[in-house]
Design a binder for these strands. Structure first.
Lengths: 187, 187
DNA sequence: ACCTGAACACCGTTCAAGT
DNA sequence: ACCTGAACACCGTTCAAGT
Protein backbone atom coordinates (compact mmCIF):
# COMPACT_ATOMS: atom_id res chain seq x y z
CA UNK A 1 0.00 0.00 0.00
CA UNK A 2 1.46 3.25 -1.18
CA UNK A 3 0.75 5.47 1.78
CA UNK A 4 2.36 8.88 1.52
CA UNK A 5 6.08 8.60 1.83
CA UNK A 6 6.60 11.76 3.87
CA UNK A 7 3.70 11.64 6.30
CA UNK A 8 2.72 8.04 6.90
CA UNK A 9 -0.98 8.92 7.43
CA UNK A 10 -3.53 9.34 4.65
CA UNK A 11 -4.65 12.69 3.28
CA UNK A 12 -8.29 13.79 3.42
CA UNK A 13 -10.38 16.51 1.80
CA UNK A 14 -11.22 17.85 5.26
CA UNK A 15 -7.56 18.21 6.12
CA UNK A 16 -6.86 19.95 2.82
CA UNK A 17 -9.66 22.47 3.33
CA UNK A 18 -8.46 23.30 6.81
CA UNK A 19 -4.89 23.80 5.66
CA UNK A 20 -6.10 26.00 2.80
CA UNK A 21 -8.03 28.15 5.25
CA UNK A 22 -4.92 28.41 7.42
CA UNK A 23 -2.87 29.72 4.49
CA UNK A 24 -5.68 32.06 3.44
CA UNK A 25 -5.85 33.57 6.91
CA UNK A 26 -2.10 33.86 7.25
CA UNK A 27 -1.16 35.09 3.77
CA UNK A 28 -4.35 35.88 1.86
CA UNK A 29 -6.31 34.03 -0.81
CA UNK A 30 -4.12 35.45 -3.54
CA UNK A 31 -1.07 33.76 -2.11
CA UNK A 32 -2.64 30.34 -1.80
CA UNK A 33 -1.23 27.93 -4.32
CA UNK A 34 -1.70 24.20 -4.69
CA UNK A 35 2.04 23.77 -4.41
CA UNK A 36 2.30 25.81 -1.23
CA UNK A 37 -0.69 23.98 0.19
CA UNK A 38 1.01 20.66 -0.53
CA UNK A 39 4.16 21.88 1.19
CA UNK A 40 2.11 22.94 4.23
CA UNK A 41 0.69 19.41 4.37
CA UNK A 42 4.10 17.89 3.70
CA UNK A 43 2.77 16.11 0.66
CA UNK A 44 3.45 15.82 -3.05
CA UNK A 45 1.57 18.58 -4.92
CA UNK A 46 -0.11 16.06 -7.18
CA UNK A 47 -1.50 14.05 -4.28
CA UNK A 48 -3.99 16.83 -3.59
CA UNK A 49 -5.80 16.08 -6.83
CA UNK A 50 -6.91 12.72 -5.50
CA UNK A 51 -9.02 14.44 -2.87
CA UNK A 52 -9.98 17.71 -4.49
CA UNK A 53 -10.86 18.13 -8.18
CA UNK A 54 -9.27 21.58 -8.67
CA UNK A 55 -8.20 24.74 -6.93
CA UNK A 56 -11.49 26.39 -7.92
CA UNK A 57 -13.49 23.55 -6.35
CA UNK A 58 -11.39 23.83 -3.22
CA UNK A 59 -12.10 27.56 -2.95
CA UNK A 60 -15.79 26.93 -3.64
CA UNK A 61 -15.94 24.51 -0.78
CA UNK A 62 -14.12 26.79 1.65
CA UNK A 63 -16.27 29.79 0.67
CA UNK A 64 -19.51 27.84 0.98
CA UNK A 65 -18.54 26.38 4.34
CA UNK A 66 -17.82 29.88 5.56
CA UNK A 67 -21.14 31.21 4.24
CA UNK A 68 -23.01 28.60 6.28
CA UNK A 69 -21.98 30.43 9.45
CA UNK A 70 -23.87 33.51 8.29
CA UNK A 71 -27.23 32.23 9.49
CA UNK A 72 -27.89 34.28 12.62
CA UNK A 73 -29.50 32.74 15.72
CA UNK A 74 -33.30 32.58 15.34
CA UNK A 75 -34.69 35.68 16.91
CA UNK A 76 -38.28 36.19 15.81
CA UNK A 77 -39.57 37.54 19.11
CA UNK A 78 -37.07 40.38 19.48
CA UNK A 79 -37.66 43.96 18.28
CA UNK A 80 -36.63 44.36 14.66
CA UNK A 81 -33.87 46.82 15.51
CA UNK A 82 -32.32 44.11 17.66
CA UNK A 83 -32.81 41.52 14.91
CA UNK A 84 -31.03 43.68 12.37
CA UNK A 85 -28.15 44.34 14.74
CA UNK A 86 -27.90 40.60 15.33
CA UNK A 87 -27.63 39.93 11.57
CA UNK A 88 -25.06 42.69 11.11
CA UNK A 89 -22.98 41.51 14.08
CA UNK A 90 -23.04 37.92 12.86
CA UNK A 91 -21.84 39.04 9.43
CA UNK A 92 -19.09 41.11 10.99
CA UNK A 93 -17.91 38.29 13.21
CA UNK A 94 -17.60 35.96 10.21
CA UNK A 95 -15.97 38.64 8.07
CA UNK A 96 -13.34 39.23 10.73
CA UNK A 97 -12.68 35.56 11.34
CA UNK A 98 -11.44 35.17 7.76
CA UNK A 99 -11.05 38.67 6.32
CA UNK A 100 -9.18 37.72 3.17
CA UNK A 101 -11.70 35.01 2.34
CA UNK A 102 -14.59 37.39 2.95
CA UNK A 103 -13.31 40.03 0.53
CA UNK A 104 -12.35 37.43 -2.01
CA UNK A 105 -15.77 35.77 -1.85
CA UNK A 106 -17.44 39.10 -2.49
CA UNK A 107 -15.35 39.57 -5.61
CA UNK A 108 -16.17 36.02 -6.77
CA UNK A 109 -19.81 35.41 -5.91
CA UNK A 110 -19.92 32.38 -8.20
CA UNK A 111 -17.69 30.51 -5.73
CA UNK A 112 -20.13 30.60 -2.85
CA UNK A 113 -23.18 28.44 -2.56
CA UNK A 114 -25.61 30.35 -0.37
CA UNK A 115 -28.22 28.52 1.69
CA UNK A 116 -31.89 29.19 1.05
CA UNK A 117 -32.45 30.38 4.61
CA UNK A 118 -29.99 33.26 4.33
CA UNK A 119 -32.65 35.79 3.34
CA UNK A 120 -35.22 34.69 5.90
CA UNK A 121 -33.48 36.59 8.69
CA UNK A 122 -33.76 39.79 6.64
CA UNK A 123 -37.38 39.04 5.80
CA UNK A 124 -38.32 38.49 9.43
CA UNK A 125 -36.71 41.78 10.23
CA UNK A 126 -38.49 43.74 7.50
CA UNK A 127 -41.81 42.19 8.45
CA UNK A 128 -41.32 43.25 12.06
CA UNK A 129 -40.27 46.73 10.91
CA UNK A 130 -43.58 47.14 9.09
CA UNK A 131 -42.05 47.42 5.62
CA UNK A 132 -44.64 46.84 2.87
CA UNK A 133 -44.19 43.39 1.36
CA UNK A 134 -43.70 44.59 -2.22
CA UNK A 135 -40.56 46.42 -1.10
CA UNK A 136 -38.97 43.44 0.64
CA UNK A 137 -36.80 42.27 -2.27
CA UNK A 138 -35.28 45.66 -3.00
CA UNK A 139 -34.66 46.66 0.60
CA UNK A 140 -33.17 43.27 1.33
CA UNK A 141 -30.71 43.77 -1.51
CA UNK A 142 -29.93 47.29 -0.33
CA UNK A 143 -29.28 46.17 3.25
CA UNK A 144 -27.33 43.07 2.30
CA UNK A 145 -25.24 44.99 -0.23
CA UNK A 146 -24.36 47.73 2.21
CA UNK A 147 -23.60 45.46 5.17
CA UNK A 148 -21.65 42.83 3.21
CA UNK A 149 -19.97 45.53 1.12
CA UNK A 150 -18.98 47.62 4.13
CA UNK A 151 -17.45 44.56 5.77
CA UNK A 152 -15.57 43.69 2.62
CA UNK A 153 -14.14 47.20 2.53
CA UNK A 154 -13.23 46.95 6.21
CA UNK A 155 -11.70 43.49 5.80
CA UNK A 156 -9.56 44.62 2.89
CA UNK A 157 -8.28 47.61 4.87
CA UNK A 158 -9.94 50.23 2.69
CA UNK A 159 -11.49 52.05 5.63
CA UNK A 160 -8.45 52.08 7.87
CA UNK A 161 -6.33 53.35 5.00
CA UNK A 162 -8.52 56.41 4.59
CA UNK A 163 -8.66 57.78 8.10
CA UNK A 164 -5.82 57.17 10.46
CA UNK A 165 -7.46 57.01 13.86
CA UNK A 166 -10.49 54.78 13.41
CA UNK A 167 -12.39 52.79 15.97
CA UNK A 168 -13.57 50.19 13.46
CA UNK A 169 -16.11 48.69 15.85
CA UNK A 170 -17.70 52.08 16.50
CA UNK A 171 -17.67 52.98 12.79
CA UNK A 172 -19.58 49.80 12.00
CA UNK A 173 -22.12 50.49 14.73
CA UNK A 174 -22.56 53.98 13.26
CA UNK A 175 -23.25 52.40 9.88
CA UNK A 176 -25.82 50.01 11.36
CA UNK A 177 -27.44 52.88 13.25
CA UNK A 178 -27.86 54.76 9.98
CA UNK A 179 -29.56 51.74 8.43
CA UNK A 180 -31.88 51.25 11.40
CA UNK A 181 -32.91 54.91 11.45
CA UNK A 182 -33.36 54.71 7.69
CA UNK A 183 -35.55 51.62 7.91
CA UNK A 184 -37.61 53.24 10.62
CA UNK A 185 -38.72 55.70 7.93
CA UNK A 186 -40.77 52.91 6.34
CA UNK A 187 -42.94 52.51 9.43
CA UNK B 1 17.45 52.86 -34.34
CA UNK B 2 15.78 49.84 -32.93
CA UNK B 3 12.15 50.80 -33.23
CA UNK B 4 9.81 47.96 -32.49
CA UNK B 5 9.99 45.37 -35.21
CA UNK B 6 6.30 44.53 -35.29
CA UNK B 7 4.70 47.95 -34.95
CA UNK B 8 7.01 50.59 -36.32
CA UNK B 9 5.78 53.28 -33.90
CA UNK B 10 7.15 53.74 -30.40
CA UNK B 11 5.43 52.46 -27.26
CA UNK B 12 4.31 54.80 -24.47
CA UNK B 13 3.21 54.44 -20.88
CA UNK B 14 -0.09 56.09 -21.78
CA UNK B 15 -0.76 53.56 -24.50
CA UNK B 16 0.07 50.69 -22.14
CA UNK B 17 -2.30 51.94 -19.46
CA UNK B 18 -5.14 52.29 -21.94
CA UNK B 19 -4.59 48.81 -23.34
CA UNK B 20 -4.49 47.40 -19.79
CA UNK B 21 -7.80 49.05 -19.00
CA UNK B 22 -9.27 47.60 -22.19
CA UNK B 23 -8.27 44.07 -21.14
CA UNK B 24 -9.50 44.67 -17.59
CA UNK B 25 -12.91 45.77 -18.85
CA UNK B 26 -13.18 42.95 -21.35
CA UNK B 27 -11.82 40.06 -19.29
CA UNK B 28 -11.33 41.23 -15.71
CA UNK B 29 -8.29 42.28 -13.71
CA UNK B 30 -7.49 38.69 -12.81
CA UNK B 31 -7.00 37.78 -16.45
CA UNK B 32 -4.67 40.67 -17.21
CA UNK B 33 -1.12 39.48 -17.75
CA UNK B 34 1.92 41.31 -18.98
CA UNK B 35 2.27 38.82 -21.77
CA UNK B 36 -1.35 39.19 -22.88
CA UNK B 37 -1.00 42.95 -22.66
CA UNK B 38 2.05 42.81 -24.88
CA UNK B 39 0.17 40.67 -27.37
CA UNK B 40 -2.70 43.19 -27.39
CA UNK B 41 -0.16 45.90 -28.21
CA UNK B 42 1.61 43.68 -30.72
CA UNK B 43 4.86 44.07 -28.86
CA UNK B 44 7.50 41.92 -27.21
CA UNK B 45 6.53 41.24 -23.57
CA UNK B 46 9.82 42.61 -22.32
CA UNK B 47 9.40 45.92 -24.10
CA UNK B 48 6.72 46.89 -21.60
CA UNK B 49 9.31 47.08 -18.85
CA UNK B 50 10.96 50.05 -20.50
CA UNK B 51 7.83 52.13 -19.91
CA UNK B 52 6.34 50.63 -16.78
CA UNK B 53 8.36 49.37 -13.81
CA UNK B 54 6.14 46.40 -12.93
CA UNK B 55 2.66 44.97 -13.18
CA UNK B 56 1.89 46.29 -9.69
CA UNK B 57 2.94 49.81 -10.66
CA UNK B 58 0.81 49.55 -13.78
CA UNK B 59 -2.25 48.56 -11.72
CA UNK B 60 -1.48 51.33 -9.23
CA UNK B 61 -1.50 53.87 -11.98
CA UNK B 62 -4.72 52.62 -13.54
CA UNK B 63 -6.48 52.45 -10.14
CA UNK B 64 -5.34 55.93 -9.16
CA UNK B 65 -6.35 57.43 -12.50
CA UNK B 66 -9.76 55.91 -12.04
CA UNK B 67 -10.08 57.22 -8.47
CA UNK B 68 -9.50 60.76 -9.72
CA UNK B 69 -12.90 60.65 -11.42
CA UNK B 70 -14.58 60.19 -8.05
CA UNK B 71 -14.53 63.88 -7.21
CA UNK B 72 -18.14 64.96 -7.69
CA UNK B 73 -19.05 68.33 -9.23
CA UNK B 74 -18.84 71.11 -6.61
CA UNK B 75 -22.30 71.55 -5.18
CA UNK B 76 -22.13 73.53 -1.95
CA UNK B 77 -25.35 75.44 -2.48
CA UNK B 78 -27.63 72.44 -2.98
CA UNK B 79 -29.61 70.74 -0.19
CA UNK B 80 -27.52 68.07 1.52
CA UNK B 81 -29.80 65.27 0.37
CA UNK B 82 -29.08 66.31 -3.18
CA UNK B 83 -25.34 66.55 -2.46
CA UNK B 84 -25.28 63.01 -1.06
CA UNK B 85 -27.18 61.65 -4.04
CA UNK B 86 -24.68 63.39 -6.32
CA UNK B 87 -21.74 61.71 -4.57
CA UNK B 88 -23.43 58.32 -4.66
CA UNK B 89 -24.36 58.66 -8.32
CA UNK B 90 -20.83 59.73 -9.26
CA UNK B 91 -19.42 56.71 -7.44
CA UNK B 92 -21.89 54.42 -9.17
CA UNK B 93 -21.14 55.82 -12.60
CA UNK B 94 -17.40 55.21 -12.11
CA UNK B 95 -17.97 51.76 -10.61
CA UNK B 96 -20.04 50.76 -13.63
CA UNK B 97 -17.60 52.17 -16.14
CA UNK B 98 -14.92 49.71 -15.00
CA UNK B 99 -16.64 47.18 -12.73
CA UNK B 100 -13.80 44.70 -12.50
CA UNK B 101 -11.32 47.44 -11.65
CA UNK B 102 -13.66 48.86 -9.03
CA UNK B 103 -14.04 45.57 -7.16
CA UNK B 104 -10.37 44.80 -7.48
CA UNK B 105 -9.36 48.22 -6.15
CA UNK B 106 -11.56 47.71 -3.11
CA UNK B 107 -9.81 44.43 -2.38
CA UNK B 108 -6.39 46.10 -2.82
CA UNK B 109 -6.65 49.55 -1.27
CA UNK B 110 -2.86 49.90 -1.26
CA UNK B 111 -2.94 50.21 -5.06
CA UNK B 112 -4.99 53.38 -5.16
CA UNK B 113 -3.66 56.81 -4.37
CA UNK B 114 -6.66 58.83 -3.22
CA UNK B 115 -6.70 62.59 -3.64
CA UNK B 116 -6.97 64.78 -0.56
CA UNK B 117 -10.18 66.37 -1.77
CA UNK B 118 -12.07 63.10 -1.83
CA UNK B 119 -13.50 63.53 1.68
CA UNK B 120 -14.43 67.17 1.28
CA UNK B 121 -17.59 66.33 -0.61
CA UNK B 122 -18.72 64.14 2.30
CA UNK B 123 -17.77 66.83 4.80
CA UNK B 124 -19.76 69.51 2.95
CA UNK B 125 -22.68 67.17 3.00
CA UNK B 126 -22.50 66.38 6.70
CA UNK B 127 -22.08 70.04 7.57
CA UNK B 128 -25.20 70.89 5.58
CA UNK B 129 -27.06 68.02 7.22
CA UNK B 130 -26.34 69.48 10.66
CA UNK B 131 -24.24 66.57 11.87
CA UNK B 132 -22.14 67.47 14.94
CA UNK B 133 -18.51 67.97 13.92
CA UNK B 134 -17.08 65.39 16.31
CA UNK B 135 -19.07 62.70 14.48
CA UNK B 136 -17.85 63.64 10.99
CA UNK B 137 -14.99 61.15 10.77
CA UNK B 138 -17.02 58.14 11.83
CA UNK B 139 -20.09 58.91 9.75
CA UNK B 140 -17.91 59.63 6.74
CA UNK B 141 -16.34 56.19 7.08
CA UNK B 142 -19.74 54.60 7.54
CA UNK B 143 -21.17 56.28 4.45
CA UNK B 144 -18.12 55.72 2.29
CA UNK B 145 -17.85 52.09 3.36
CA UNK B 146 -21.47 51.36 2.62
CA UNK B 147 -21.62 53.17 -0.72
CA UNK B 148 -18.28 51.93 -2.05
CA UNK B 149 -18.91 48.48 -0.61
CA UNK B 150 -22.40 48.20 -2.07
CA UNK B 151 -21.07 49.18 -5.48
CA UNK B 152 -18.27 46.66 -5.23
CA UNK B 153 -20.82 43.95 -4.43
CA UNK B 154 -22.97 45.10 -7.34
CA UNK B 155 -20.01 45.29 -9.73
CA UNK B 156 -18.89 41.79 -8.83
CA UNK B 157 -22.38 40.41 -9.45
CA UNK B 158 -23.03 39.48 -5.84
CA UNK B 159 -26.40 41.23 -5.74
CA UNK B 160 -27.73 39.97 -9.05
CA UNK B 161 -26.74 36.45 -8.08
CA UNK B 162 -28.88 36.54 -4.98
CA UNK B 163 -32.21 37.70 -6.37
CA UNK B 164 -33.14 36.93 -9.92
CA UNK B 165 -35.28 39.85 -10.97
CA UNK B 166 -33.44 42.93 -9.76
CA UNK B 167 -33.68 46.47 -10.99
CA UNK B 168 -30.15 47.36 -9.96
CA UNK B 169 -30.66 51.08 -10.45
CA UNK B 170 -33.73 51.09 -8.21
CA UNK B 171 -32.03 48.92 -5.59
CA UNK B 172 -29.17 51.41 -5.37
CA UNK B 173 -31.57 54.32 -5.03
CA UNK B 174 -33.30 52.41 -2.23
CA UNK B 175 -29.94 52.04 -0.50
CA UNK B 176 -29.19 55.75 -0.84
CA UNK B 177 -32.68 56.61 0.43
CA UNK B 178 -32.01 54.54 3.54
CA UNK B 179 -28.78 56.45 4.15
CA UNK B 180 -30.43 59.84 3.64
CA UNK B 181 -33.29 59.03 6.00
CA UNK B 182 -30.74 57.68 8.46
CA UNK B 183 -28.61 60.82 8.27
CA UNK B 184 -31.70 62.94 8.75
CA UNK B 185 -31.87 61.43 12.25
CA UNK B 186 -28.81 63.49 13.22
CA UNK B 187 -30.59 66.76 12.59
C1' DA C 1 -6.64 2.87 -4.16
C1' DC C 2 -3.39 6.11 -3.57
C1' DC C 3 0.79 8.37 -4.76
C1' DT C 4 4.41 10.56 -7.81
C1' DG C 5 7.78 12.45 -11.47
C1' DA C 6 7.94 14.43 -15.72
C1' DA C 7 5.80 17.40 -18.69
C1' DC C 8 2.80 21.23 -20.65
C1' DA C 9 1.18 25.71 -20.97
C1' DC C 10 1.14 29.44 -18.52
C1' DC C 11 2.96 33.51 -15.08
C1' DG C 12 6.30 38.08 -13.66
C1' DT C 13 10.74 39.56 -14.06
C1' DT C 14 16.12 39.89 -14.79
C1' DC C 15 19.77 40.43 -17.59
C1' DA C 16 23.09 40.31 -21.14
C1' DA C 17 23.17 41.21 -25.81
C1' DG C 18 21.66 43.46 -29.75
C1' DT C 19 20.58 48.04 -32.84
C1' DA D 1 17.56 54.91 -26.04
C1' DC D 2 14.91 51.25 -27.00
C1' DC D 3 14.18 46.50 -27.95
C1' DT D 4 14.68 41.33 -27.44
C1' DG D 5 15.75 36.21 -26.53
C1' DA D 6 16.97 33.19 -23.15
C1' DA D 7 16.54 32.10 -18.60
C1' DC D 8 14.74 31.74 -13.68
C1' DA D 9 11.46 30.80 -10.33
C1' DC D 10 7.02 30.33 -10.03
C1' DC D 11 1.80 28.74 -11.36
C1' DG D 12 -2.44 24.82 -12.23
C1' DT D 13 -3.10 20.59 -14.16
C1' DT D 14 -2.60 16.00 -17.03
C1' DC D 15 -1.02 11.66 -17.46
C1' DA D 16 1.56 7.56 -17.50
C1' DA D 17 3.91 4.90 -14.32
C1' DG D 18 4.71 3.20 -9.89
C1' DT D 19 3.16 0.52 -5.21
Amino acid sequence: MAVNARRGRPLSAEEIHLAALRIIDAEGVERLSMRKLAAELDVNPMSLYHHVPSKTALLQHVCSMNAKSLLPPPNEGAPWQRQLREIADTYRRIAREHPSLWSYAQLHPELTHREEGLWEAFNDCLRAAGVPKERFAQIRIALFGMVAGYLSAEAAGLLAANDDQVDTEAAFQTAVDLLITGLDGYR
